[in-house]
Nucleic acid binder design. Structure first.
Lengths: 202, 202
DNA sequence: GGGCTACCATGACGAGTGTCATGAAGGAGG
DNA sequence: CCTCCTTCATGACACTCGTCATGGTAGCCC
């Protein structure tokens, strides 16, 4: 529950990047948001802003990865389409509950710093990779042949991220609903029933 | 060929936003890139940076919309899947030719300024709308029922934008190829053959 | 107690930002 | 010629930014 000041700073950085992007997120803003002392910055993050944002990105990637597992575990009679719907629903819920101010920090970091900071760019690359891999594994557990699980995971991530951008631009969750509906039959059609690891015995 | 200084400024702004995002793109950078005099800024864009970026976003949206029509016209035996593949191929070609520094300016603007500037946010909203509509119309010409054309257009845009982000993060065009392959059967499966407006007579 | 380390506080520096005030060319029309 | 208007030039203002230097406090270990 209570986090160390260092964790609070990383978390606040991720939050602010989601809203403002990395360029507009100042270090003074971050410590103010985290209610942490400004002097902690040079102590915990001697690598400066790049290190801080990189850690925030890594944290966000890990969070997204963990969320895949948690959401998948809650599904009853799980299918890839339902998993995608559940992932999109989390964004849908957040948008309707708290507005469209915050997007995905990974997208924001790519847009702002992919060409500027190599370290940040491949922090995001690793974060996406660490998100895609457990997603692909989950798909395999749902019966997707391993030859296609990685491809479908990339498709799901791409479509979800793009729909988030469209939803924010339009201030409307409709794009999220639309892509879920359109993608569902394709995703569910990819399961190989013979290989499915059912929760009940054969 | 030769453009007015004003156009050059708007175009340069769009270019720089693609690379650096809107926050990190300074007005001095823009005029330097456009080889335009700094004094022109306050003359042509009395609304300041917001106006300039908004015009750059609008131009980018119009450019994307025109490109849909141009790409569609070049397809032989056109299908929705081929159209999507051609749209993705343009990004693929640019990435392989000139690197992964530049992304989509609409995504960059949403990530940077959606929560900050309302005027910019709905400039992007209008740009996406002006991109999606002609895309949906093109899909209808390819035989997609009008009830689904808008949904499929949203799906295509979302997936393309997301794949662009993933490609930049990984410095690899693979995500673009992956989503094209995975989405093709779904897209081509949506054409209603009876309604297709064939280029040849029945 | 002395010393060491972790943590925090604060002020300054140089560079960058968007914006504005002021003024100067340069051609069109009276 | 003189005026008007568009276009451009330049310097200044009031910031904010990331970073660093310096110093202070608190606690633990020998």
């Amino acid at each position: 529950m209570t986090r160390t000041p260092r964790e609070r700073i990383v978390l606040s950085a991720a939050q602010l990047v989601r809203i403002q992007g990395v360029g507009a997120t100042g270090m003074r803003d971050v410590v103010a948001h985290a209610e942490a002392p400004r002097g902690s910055l040079q102590h915990y993050f001697p690598g400066g802003k790049d290190q801080l944002i990189a850690e925030a990105v890594a944290w966000a990637g890990g969070y997204a990865a963990r969320r895949v597992a948690r959401v998948a575990a809650k599904l009853e009679d799980p299918t890839p389409g339902k998993l995608f719907a559940a992932m999109a629903a989390q964004w849908r819920d957040e948008f309707t509950a708290t507005g469209f101010d915050a997007g995905c920090p990974l997208v924001a970091t790519v847009a702002d710093a992919a060409a500027t900071s190599e370290s940040l760019r491949d922090a995001v690359g690793k974060a996406f990779e660490g998100w895609q891999r457990p997603l692909a594994e989950t798909l395999e557990q749902f019966g997707v042949p391993s030859a296609r699980s990685a491809s479908l995971a990339v498709l799901m991530l791409s479509t979800l991220e793009g729909a988030i951008v469209l939803a924010r631009a339009h201030q409307d969750v409709a794009p999220l609903d639309t892509v879920v509906e359109e993608l569902r039959p394709l995703l569910d059609g990819a399961v190989d029933r013979r290989r499915r690891r059912a929760s009940t015995v054969d």
